[in-house]
Structures are given as structure tokens and as C-alpha cells.
Design a protein around this nucleic acid. Structure first.
Length: 783
DNA sequence: CATTCGAAGGCTAGGGGAAC
DNA sequence: GTTCCCCTAGCCTTCGAATG
């Protein structure tokens, strides 16, 4: 699906800054700052990796950094964690280097809490803009719905985006409006979706109009397809969760998806058939001692550049994986005792000796790997390299007994980072079944357990049914509920009891009250006499009562099935027919929904090979308000149907340049208090029209840099040589590593292990290769 | 002074649920 | 499905106050 062309450079050399039309971004995720904070040995691991990420960003001279969630390990990080995090960010994100990338979208919408992108804050001297979403560990919570990321954002250290209010009733609604970035001719649209509970998001993706994608409008000067579309997402991806978010939910016009949350490093971009590429960088610190975390930890650099011959065509791009060196070595192995000939089930001492030898071998292997990545001196000095994480997962089926892991670990204190939990014993069910004598006993036990679980599940189900029934019986009668619906109340009670949401009922009442008040106010204004007023109010209240629930109905099954009655009801919530239907009668509402005439032409899903950029199929709509009509579309599966053209958010000189803002602030400080209007108001420029894009394209990179860094031009130039050795040092590390630890004989592994992807031109057949080693640039076929 | 009693804290196992 | 973490119950020990 991608065309490739040889890079203009011969090696992946980040010591030189990217050219005026190349946007270079460092991408990392799941840094889990504060992880293992109470563990004296491991408490620094996350911070060291975090620091290395930013050292790499500086050395690679990237224009900005993208973080895909879980920056912090817990929702309420300790003060120590916050301070250490802010210290690292302050050190690397602030400085005098001019910012070459420019955000041209509405920053009030992108970053609602701050309203501006941090480098435009006259009080913050930002050199490296960082854009981050939240993850499940640092998701917003509390009355004010704040995340620890909000603290960083308020301090001007990061640009936190992708927090969605989930308004809109029903399954909730998310409006994905991209952060539009420009550097020279290159344009990048950055979409972000911070973590949302899987089942919630699953449901939203299944219901038409709940997830709405906004795209830069197609104009004669600027094709939609000339934007490089990047998505940061933080959700379950693997099949281990039944509500895992499938990449099929994402629109195929995306180019590059950074998948956070999953800790296994699968950073090599893999192509979704006919669509975009997904890169899963994985965590930068080991949080669980599982196999997936034993892989080498990596981050990557994404480079995007417009085709100078045809700036309106699809941009070129490539990625470069960079292994992290500061991560603590982690060796993982699993063994089945029954398959080891030399062991006898009765020989406890023999077992202990065997495991001890095995662990020692793992430690040696960890040391060897660490030495290969570091100069021996560093290895000896750094405890974290000398003290690896070791996990031996032991299947003791077949009559073996376990040994106390803690006592076993005593022998390895001072040799590994996790002496207490090196060994993990488990029994495999298959092996157990093959073990003659135990089989009936095991089966009996399993039957018993299964019956017990079934009974418990049935009990829970029965509890929920009872809640539902009680509410209906006692509160739905003529005078029982006048503002709340029984469905709403059942759902809130369920949340209160089963999900420990102490404010569920209060929230429901407040929301309903507000809805009714709004509705009554609107109706009352149209009434002339008191009698009519009463009738109007009565009607308004009745209408509100008939509106669908904001909570998912209790006991709703197949919540992810977009064709279920409940889902259909939600889908049709914009239609008066559905709204008028009794909330109890979901089927009736479902039948009404499809009869709504679509207000926009529906786009049929085509085979991947023949699909084109959706923007070209649509007529550009100048009015953003058109978005509400999307609900009426009936093609659930077509992700294109939820695409909304942004009404010319692109601007250029609209915002005051940072230098101008700083100058203005300083001038204001020097003088007696003057009117705030000295700072140009960007509001007026915001609705700039088509011409803006042309103007934007004509402004070259130097123009931006000089405009932004006007005041700092001299110091920046002076600083350049000082920073150079840093980059050179970083560059020198790669050859050094090759020289010391070249076990594979393939320097490809040093930069980005390929797992079969190679420099030998396989990309022409596979079409998925945009990796470092070959220095080829990928490109969308569209354009 | 010895014994008894209760409070407080440490430790452990197990359950539940979140994370992956 | 596995792993990890948090919470809780239950048990034990220690300590101090009350009692005889």
C-alpha cells in the first residue's frame, strides 16, 4: 500500500538537524514514572529510562516528542515522583533553541485546559514541545476530572491532549480534533485519544456518531491527503481482553498509529491491510515479570517530509527504532520440571540445585547482554546493569513439589534485583490431566469450582435483576418517578453498588435536573399565558422523561453489537421518532431509527485495494455545525461516515510569535500597566479562510524559526557548538556498541532489529518497510 | 507480683479486580 | 489466561492497664 523511495541521506544520522521541510518526532510510551517506588533497588529505573528518552530526543535533534500515555505509574503520583518528573522535563523541554514546528489548529480546542500550546506561553521558555495523552494509570479522576498530566501541562512542561468529556448522552461521544502541525511544507495532523475504559470505547465505536473524526478540509490549495495523520491511542490491543480495541475501528485514512498501553515492544510499524501502520513502542521500564517485557525496550524517531515537487501530495515518512540502554536487564525463562530427565519428583535437594544452576546461567546471560550494550566500565559501575531482573517460571506438574521462592531467593541477594520472586511455580492443566492418578480428583475439583462460579455468576445476575425489578415495581408507578426514568435509576444503582461509584446517583440526579431545566426554559419562553406555560412545561418534562438513558441499561448484553436494540436506540437518538418511543420499548425505537433519511450521502465500504482518501469523496463543508447531522447516518460500520471536515482551522501569522509575545510581556512589565490588547488577539485571525494556507506554505522554515526565536537568535547560534558534542557522543555510541557486542554480526540489530524485515528490498513485495536501516521513505499511494 | 484482658500492630493467605 | 496489587480477615505477638 506504500510506495518507497530512496532517502536523500545515506545513513540514519541524527547528528544533523532535520531539514526545513522534515518534521522529526521522537515517540515513546508507558514510561510509568514512580513504578516500584518502594523498592530500593528498582525505584530509579523508570526515571533513568525517562531521562534517556529525552537525552535521545535532544541528541537526535527532534522537533517534538509524542508520548502515548501512562507517563506516570499511578493515578496520584507521590510528591517525589512528581518532582523528579518535572525536574527531568524542565531540564530537557526548556531552553533557548527555537521551536521549528508550528501548531496551526485551534489550540483552545486541542488543549482546553491551557488554551495554548506551551511554546507560545510567554512565561515558559520551551525548546522541545512534548505532546502527550493520558493512559489508564494516569487517567483523569475526581470531581474536576484532572489527571497528573494536567499538573505537567499547567507547569508548561507538556501539551496534554486527548482528554475527552464523553458527553452527548447514550454511549457517550468523542470528537477527535487533531493538533495540526506544520514545519515548512510538511503538515502533520496529530490525533489523540487518552485511555477510556475498554467496554465504553468499544460501545462508542459500535454506535454511529459516537466517535467523530475531524479532518482538515479539502481546499484547492491544500489537499486533505497532504496531511500526515498520526494517532496516539492507549487501549488494550491484545486478544486477551474481550473488549480489546481492534484496529478495524480506526479509519484507514490514518497513516501512523502509536499504540500505547501494551508493554511488549513491537515498535516496528506493521501495516493494517490496505490502511495505516501501527507501531507499539511498549513500556520503557519493566513493570511485570512476564515474557513480553523481557524484550529489548525501544523508542523510535518518526520523520515526515512533504514532497518538495508536489507539496500537496502525500508526504514521505520513515521510522528509526532506537534501543534504550539504561533499562535494567531482564531474563525470562519457563521450564516444565516433568520434561527434565535428570530430575526426580522426590529429590527436593536435586530440584533446588537444578533451579539454582538455571538461575545462575540466566544471570550470566543477562550480564553478557548488558556488557554488549555498554562499556565494561559502565557495567561495573551501574548497579542496575549488574543486578538484572530474573524470572524463572516453573511448571511443577507431574508430582513435583514447590520450594519456597523467598528462601530460594536468599542465595541471590546482591546478585539480582528481585531476589524474592525469581521463581514462579504453576501447574499446567494439560499436564495435570495427563497425570493418571490425579485426573479424577482434579476433574471433580474443577466441576465443583465451575458449579460454584456458575452459582456465583447467577447470583450476581440475579442481584442485578432484582435491583432492576425493585426499581420498576416501586418507583415506576404513576407517581413514583417524575424526573428520573427507571432505567436511569437502575443503572445508577448498579454503578453505586457494583462499581463502587459513590456519586453515581447524585450525578444522575444533577444531570437529569439540568436537562429538564434547560428543556423547560426553552419551552417556557414560547408560552404566552400561564395556562399555556403550564402545558408547555408539562410537555417539556414529559419529553425529557422519554429521552433515552444516559446509562447503559442494566443487564444489557452484546453491548458491543451495534445492531442490538439498545445500540439502535442510541443510534437513533437524534430522531424524534426514537425520542418519542417509550424507553422501555427498545425494539420500537430500533425500528424507527433506520427510517431516518441520511442527510449526507453514505459511503459504502469498499475493498481495501480500491479505497481512496475519503476526503476526496466528500464535499468540503465550511460549517462545523454540520457535525450533528452525522448521527442520522445509518452506516455503522463505515468509519468514514464519522469523518467531519474541520472548517479551515489552519492559520499562520494569526498567533503572536513567541518572541513577539515575550517582547510584549517584557514591555508590559517595564512600562506602567498598559492595556492587554497589546498582545494581538488571535481570535479574529482564527476564522482565516483559504488564502491562509497558501500564505502558510509560502512561509519557509527559516521564517518560522527566525520569527519565533528572533530575540534568541544569537544565543541559539552560540549554543549550537555546545550541543554538538552531545549529539556526536550519542552517535558514537552505536559504532562502539557494534564493536563490543556484535553477536549477530548485523548492525541492523543495533539500530532497529528487523524480525525478517530487511534492507534487501523486501519492502517492495511486502510494502510495509519503513525502517531505519534501509533509509527508505514510505508514502501513501493516495495523493 | 502474677494473671488476665484488650488494644494495637505485624504477618499471612486468600479474594477480587485491574493490568497486560 | 496469567500476573500483580490491594484489601480484608484471621491469627499471632507484644504491650500496657486493670484486677486479684
Amino acid at each position: 500500500a506504500r510506495l518507497t523511495m530512496p532517502s536523500s541521506t545515506t545513513t540514519t544520522d541524527f547528528s544533523k538537524p532535520p531539514d526545513a521541510n522534515t518534521l522529526r518526532v521522537l515517540i515513546a510510551t508507558d514510561t510509568h514514572l514512580g513504578a516500584h517506588e518502594s523498592n530500593a533497588i528498582r525505584k530509579d529505573d523508570a526515571f533513568l529510562a525517562f531521562e534517556e528518552i529525552f537525552e535521545t530526543a535532544i541528541a537526535a535533534r527532534v522537533d517534538c516528542v509524542f508520548l502515548a500515555g501512562d507517563v506516570f505509574d499511578i493515578n496520584k503520583p507521590s510528591r517525589e515522583t512528581l518532582v523528579r518528573t518535572m525536574e527531568i522535563l524542565r531540564k530537557h523541554a526548556f531552553g533557548d533553541k527555537p521551536v521549528a514546528v508550528e501548531v496551526v489548529s485551534d489550540t483552545k480546542e486541542n488543549f482546553p485546559s491551557r488554551g495554548i500550546v506551551n511554546y507560545e506561553d510567554p512565561n515558559a521558555n520551551v525548546a522541545l514541545p512534548i505532546f502527550s495523552i493520558h493512559g489508564n494509570h494516569d487517567d483523569p479522576a475526581g470531581e474536576a476530572n484532572l489527571s497528573a498530566m494536567d499538573i505537567l501541562a499547567q507547569a508548561g512542561l507538556v501539551n496534554y491532549f486527548g482528554k475527552h468529556g464523553l458527553g452527548g448522552g447514550g454511549a457517550g461521544r468523542v470528537d477527535l480534533k487533531p493538533v495540526l502541525m506544520r514545519k515548512g511544507l510538511t503538515k502533520l495532523a496529530l490525533y489523540g485519544l487518552g485511555y477510556i475504559r475498554d467496554n465504553r470505547l468499544h460501545q462508542m465505536f459500535s454506535v454511529k456518531g459516537c466517535v467523530r473524526w475531524h479532518r482538515p478540509a479539502e481546499t484547492s490549495d491544500c489537499a486533505s491527503s497532504s496531511w500526515f495523520n498520526v494517532m496516539l491511542i492507549h487501549q488494550n490491543r491484545a486478544a486477551h481482553s474481550k473488549n480489546a480495541i481492534s484496529d478495524r475501528y480506526l479509519p484507514e485514512w490514518l497513516d501512523y498509529v502509536v499504540w500505547g498501553h501494551e508493554h511488549e515492544c513491537l515498535i516496528e510499524p506493521t501495516e493494517v491491510p490496505g490502511g495505516f501502520h501501527i507501531s507499539q513502542p511498549g513500556s520503557s521500564v519493566v513493570t511485570s515479570l512476564i515474557e513480553g517485557e523481557a524484550k529489548e525496550k525501544k523508542i523510535c524517531v518518526l520523520e515526515v517530509k512533504a514532497d518538495p515537487e508536489n507539496p500537496n501530495g502525500a508526504p514521505y515518512w520513515r521510522t528509526t527504532a532506537i534501543p534504550l540502554k539504561s533499562t535494567r536487564p531482564f531474563e525470562f525463562e519457563q521450564i516444565a520440571l516433568a520434561s527434565i530427565g535428570e530430575l526426580e519428583a522426590t529429590d527436593q535437594k536435586g530440584l533446588s540445585t537444578y533451579l539454582e544452576n538455571r538461575v545462575n546461567a540466566m544471570i550470566s546471560r543477562a550480564h553478557k547482554k548488558a556488557r554488549e550494550r555498554h562499556a565494561p566500565k559502565a557495567f561495573d559501575v551501574l548497579d542496575r546493569l549488574n543486578l538484572p531482573l530474573i524470572r524463572l517460571r516453573v511448571d511443577y506438574s507431574g508430582g513435583f513439589s514447590t520450594i519456597n521462592p523467598q528462601r530460594f531467593g536468599q542465595k541471590f541477594v546482591g546478585k539480582v534485583a528481585n531476589p524474592n520472586d525469581i521463581l514462579l511455580f504453576h501447574k499446567s492443566s494439560k499436564k495435570r490431566a495427563g497425570n493418571g492418578m490425579d485426573i479424577y480428583e482434579d476433574m471433580a475439583q474443577e466441576d465443583e469450582l465451575a458449579m460454584e462460579e456458575e452459582a456465583q455468576a447467577e447470583g450476581l445476575l440475579e442481584d442485578q435483576r432484582r435491583i432492576d425489578r425493585l426499581v420498576r415495581e416501586h418507583l415506576s408507578a404513576s407517581e413514583g418517578l417524575q424526573l428520573l426514568t427507571s432505567n436511569d435509576l437502575s443503572a445508577a444503582l448498579d454503578d453505586f453498588v457494583n462499581r463502587d461509584e459513590k456519586t453515581a446517583i447524585a450525578k444522575l440526579c444533577l444531570t437529569r435536573l439540568k436537562d429538564v431545566q434547560t428543556s423547560v426554559n426553552a419551552e417556557a419562553q414560547n408560552a404566552d399565558d400561564p395556562t399555556q406555560l403550564m402545558t408547555k412545561i408539562q410537555e417539556a418534562v414529559e419529553l425529557q422523561m422519554k429521552k433515552p438513558t444516559k446509562h447503559k441499561p442494566v443487564l444489557e448484553e452484546n453491548a458491543n453489537d451495534g445492531t442490538s436494540a439498545a445500540a439502535s436506540k442510541r443510534r437513533g437518538r437524534a430522531s424524534t421518532a426514537a425520542a418519542a418511543a417509550d424507553v422501555e420499548n427498545e425494539a420500537a425505537a430500533a425500528n424507527d431509527a433506520p427510517t431516518q433519511p441520511p442527510t449526507q450521502k453514505t459511503t459504502q465500504k469498499k475493498p481495501a485495494a480500491t479505497r481512496r482518501a475519503p476526503a476526496k469523496k466528500k464535499t468540503p463543508t465550511p460549517e462545523p455545525e454540520v457535525i450533528s447531522d452525522v448521527d442520522d447516518e445509518d452506516e455503522i460500520e463505515d468509519s468514514d461516515a464519522d469523518v467531519i471536515p474541520l472548517s479551515q482551522p489552519v492559520k499562520t501569522a494569526a498567533r503572536p510569535s513567541r518572541a513577539a509575545a515575550i517582547a510584549s510581556t517584557r514591555a508590559m512589565r517595564k512600562q506602567t500597566p498598559s492595556s492587554p490588547s497589546e498582545v494581538p488577539d488571535s481570535e479574529d485571525e482564527f476564522d482565516a479562510d483559504d488564502e491562509v494556507i497558501e500564505a502558510s506554505d509560502s512561509e519557509d522554515d527559516v521564517g518560522i524559526a527566525s520569527a519565533r526565536g528572533r530575540k534568541r537568535a544569537a544565543p541559539a547560534a552560540k549554543k549550537a557548538p555546545a550541543k554538538k558534542p552531545r549529539a556526536t557522543t550519542s552517535r558514537a555510541k552505536a559504532p562502539a556498541r557494534r564493536a563490543t557486542g556484535d553477536d549477530s554480526g548485523d548492525d541492523v540489530d543495533d539500530v532497529a532489529p528487523t524480525r525478517g524485515r530487511s534492507t534487501r528490498g523486501t519492502q517492495n513485495t511486502q510494502g510495509t518497510q519503513n525502517t531505519t536501516q534501509n533509509n527508505t521513505w514510505g508514502r501513501s499511494r493516495r495523493g
